[in-house]
């Protein structure tokens, strides 16, 4: 009875756990594995987050939902750049992260102004 009640939750949790296990156990022939094999798996965990955000971008019932998902996507990409800079040892990945955080913030403000339905010069 309890299982029938929570069936939707169980299916979702099962799919998520299965994909996480698949990501963590699948042997990735990565270019980065000469320094750290573990970090190469971390990229694909973030890819899973990207897929969830893209689902919300496509399915969001109102424009505000899509704006929230795009803002989240911008913050996740900053984390992606940070992970990428550790095994390769190239510090300009973090320059990309700074620029991306700035433009994501300004983009979120512009989307909010657009949702508010007024001009930009107030």
């Amino acid at each position: 009875m309890i299982i029938m009640k929570n069936l939707k939750w169980l299916i979702g949790f099962g799919i998520l756990a299965a994909s996480l296990l698949f990501i963590m156990l699948y042997p990735i022939p990565s270019l980065l594995s000469w320094q750290s094999g573990f970090l190469a798996h971390c990229f694909f965990v973030l890819m899973l987050c990207f897929v969830m955000c893209f689902f919300r971008v496509m399915a969001g019932p109102t424009p505000a939902d899509r704006a929230v998902a795009i803002d989240t996507l911008g913050i996740l990409i900053v984390g992606f750049c940070a992970i990428l800079s550790i095994p390769t040892g190239r510090d300009w990945y973090l320059d990309i992260a700074i620029a991306w955080a700035l433009q994501s913030f300004i983009g979120a403000l512009a989307l909010a102004k657009y949702l508010e339905g007024r001009g930009f010069d107030e």
């Binding site: 109102t62 424009p63 505000a64 704006a67 929230v68 803002d71 913050i75 900053v78 700074i98 955080a101 700035l102 994501s104 913030f105 979120a108 403000l109 989307l111 909010a112 102004k113 657009y114 949702l115 508010e116 339905g117």
Partner: peptide
Amino acid sequence: IFLLLTSPVAAHALARGAHKS
């Protein structure tokens, strides 16, 4: 530090815009 300062401001602006729309 930059993310901790700017992300709440963006969230605040988006919530206000969503309510006004």
